[in-house]
């Protein structure tokens, strides 16, 4: 709250109330009045992984299943090698990525990405099966720059962290962040794209050209 009353705020609020034919604030409204309407195809917990994978691939991301946290490093190294990419990358300081960052074929800098970083590996909080989106939050362990600056965006996601809908994701975050919301929440569905030149869709506009999701099984 502002310490001193802000006259501009009062002006705008007074104009809004005039428009609503009121002179002062009304009683706090009751909302929501009914539970959210969730499309039938998005409901239910059956086969979340298959639904998530299909939706993410439809959004032009690639998805790979990884047997466990120890298999993450080798999977990243193999993916880079197969594309003739260097093994140098920025890796989020998230401790869950420590084993991957220690892999012998990778040259790793822990921290957020800079403008010169071609490849980044970070960790998503949740996956949303309905849209194939990743939900990433900003934190010291998972800085936001990793999500947008590199050309190749590699993201580890625990297979157990895939939920059916965005509403389910919000319910999780409300539980985990009762003490304060993350500064940034990014929903990411596929790589960056644009249709601004003659309506032809091109991938890799300003953000990543590739999004590769590594679905990590817990063992």
């Amino acid at each position: 709250m502002t310490a001193k009353p802000d006259p501009q705020r009062q002006n705008v609020l007074a104009a809004v109330r005039r428009g609503l034919a009121r002179t002062g604030p009304a009683a706090a409204p009751v909302w929501p009045v009914e539970p959210p309407l969730i499309p039938a195809a998005a409901r239910g917990d059956g086969d979340l992984i298959a639904r998530f994978t299909a939706a993410a691939e439809a959004a032009a991301a690639s998805v790979e299943r990884v047997a466990g946290p120890d298999a993450l490093g080798p999977a990243v190294a193999a993916w880079l090698t197969a594309r003739n990419l260097p093994g140098e990358l920025a890796v989020a300081p998230d401790p869950a990525l420590d084993p991957a960052a220690a892999h012998g074929l990778l040259t790793v800098r822990r921290g957020t990405a800079g403008p010169g970083d071609l490849i980044a590996l970070t960790r998503a909080r949740l996956g949303i099966a309905e849209t194939g989106s990743l939900l990433l939050t900003s934190s010291p362990e998972t800085p936001t720059g990793l999500n947008f600056l590199p050309d190749f965006h590699l993201v580890a996601l625990d297979a157990s962290a895939v939920v059916a809908t965005l509403e389910d994701a919000w319910a999780r975050l409300r539980q985990d962040h009762a003490g304060g919301w993350p500064r940034t929440v990014n929903l990411v569905a596929g790589p960056s794209r644009t249709g601004d030149i003659e309506q032809t869709i091109q991938l890799g506009a300003h953000g990543p050209r590739h999004l590769h999701i590594l679905l990590v099984e817990s063992r």
């Binding site: 959004a59 010291p140 800085p143 936001t144 500064r183 929440v185 569905a189």
Partner: peptide, 24 residues
């Protein structure tokens, strides 16, 4: 708008970077 199920990026921002944040 574009016939997509979801746009590529939907981003929620709340306040400036926190003291412990690496960027923002």
């Amino acid at each position: 708008a574009t016939g997509q199920t979801a746009s590529s990026y939907t981003s929620f921002s709340l306040g400036p970077r926190r003291p412990e944040d690496a960027d923002g």
